[in-house]
């Protein structure tokens, strides 16, 4: 299968300057990330605050400039030609890219301009890319597709509930028939019953339109439900990456194990001993030496604080970054 987007050692660093403008250090928000997103799949990125998942998404979109490494677009995304490097795109190229990738953000309240009508909001991508023909009809279709009443085109966002607003955001993301959607915590601000509606909708749309999803979340049960492959991020690096089922049934990296054990189980008979980590989530401005996870790791050894473990393929399709996993 061809790939849609591939990153090679992608890094996005933000400098911290001291009083006098000298560089004190770097916030390595994304630090050498390799992922491959295949066509038609849902790729999940999981992690806690400060792990860099949002920055990764923004870098892939070109909203953030990468410091080193590259993001490569597959032939599907480059309109038939061979692969292109995002860093080499000029402004027109970047605009094309934006046409092909739709974005859904977390906060449905803030993602919609409160002064614009729903119709203008959904049609905005079409206006930007100069595809104004039949805009209104298309907007109505999109509303129908996401399960909203097409007569509500002429309403303001505040007249809708949270779940409905998120549907409007999804409709807007699909306005230009993108090939890929990046969803950054799309259901975190929603209630459980509404969340399930949105997740079902997303799955439907993926089947109907053959979309590829990049799904970012901190909620492991949602990731498990939605994704084919999952990457776990910690302080800018990927610590484990494999197929979703494998990751959840048999996590290899100690951090993943802690995360997975933290998923609450509703079946009281299934309650197992939780792995409770010590200490706080460290700040990406000052990561620990060696393996970033070693201060909190229950099985850390002396070597772990010295050398950083590279991401290695343990089994077919399973990658882990830990010295102690064989």
């Amino acid at each position: 299968m061809s790939f849609m987007v591939k990153t090679k050692l992608l890094a996005t660093h933000f400098p911290i300057q001291d009083f006098f403008g000298r560089e004190l250090g770097l916030v390595k928000a994304v630090d050498g990330v390799n992922i491959t997103i295949t066509e038609g799949s849902t790729f999940g990125i999981v992690g806690e605050s400060g792990c860099g998942k949002t920055t990764l998404a923004r870098t892939i979109l070109g909203l953030e400039k990468s410091t080193s490494g590259s993001t490569i677009l597959g032939s599907e995304m480059s309109e038939g030609t061979e692969e292109t490097n995002i860093e080499e795109l000029d402004r027109a190229g970047l605009r094309e890219l934006r046409r092909m990738i739709g974005v859904v953000f977390q906060d449905p309240m803030g993602a919609l301009n409160p002064r614009m009508l729903v119709k203008d909001l959904i049609c905005e991508p079409m206006v930007i890319h100069n595809q104004k023909e039949g805009m209104r009809e298309r907007a109505k279709e999109l509303l129908k597709m996401v399960g909203l009443n097409p007569d509500h085109l002429y309403r303001y966002p505040h007249q809708f509930s949270g779940g409905q607003r998120q549907r409007i955001v999804i409709a807007r993301a699909l306005a230009l028939e993108p090939k890929m959607l990046i969803l950054d915590e799309p259901t975190s601000a929603l209630d459980v019953s509404v969340q399930s509606q949105i997740l079902n909708l997303l799955k439907d749309l993926q089947k109907k339109m053959g979309l590829t999803y990049v799904f970012i979340s901190h909620d492991l049960s949602v990731i498990r439900h939605m994704c084919d492959r999952v990457a776990v991020m910690y302080l800018g690096k990927i610590v484990e990456e494999s197929e979703a089922e494998t990751l959840f049934s048999n996590p290899l990296h100690p951090y993943t194990q802690a995360l997975v054990s933290a998923i609450p189980s509703l079946d009281p008979k299934m309650r197992r001993e939780r792995i409770v980590l010590e200490g706080d989530v460290p700040s990406p401005a000052d990561p620990p030496s060696g393996c970033h996870f070693h201060p909190r790791c229950p099985i850390a050894e002396a070597n772990c604080s010295q050398v950083y473990p590279d991401l290695r393929e343990i089994k077919k399709g399973c990658h882990t970054a830990c010295h102690l996993v064989k």
């Binding site: 459980v192 019953s193 997740l199 049960s221 498990r224 439900h225 509703l266």
Partner: peptide
């Protein structure tokens, strides 16, 4: 509510309508 929780099964039912 319980069947709307994403879990191990791939099926997710939902409650129609809203609060």
């Amino acid at each position: 509510l319980l069947s709307a929780l994403p879990g191990e099964s791939k099926e997710l039912s939902s409650i129609g309508g809203s609060v």
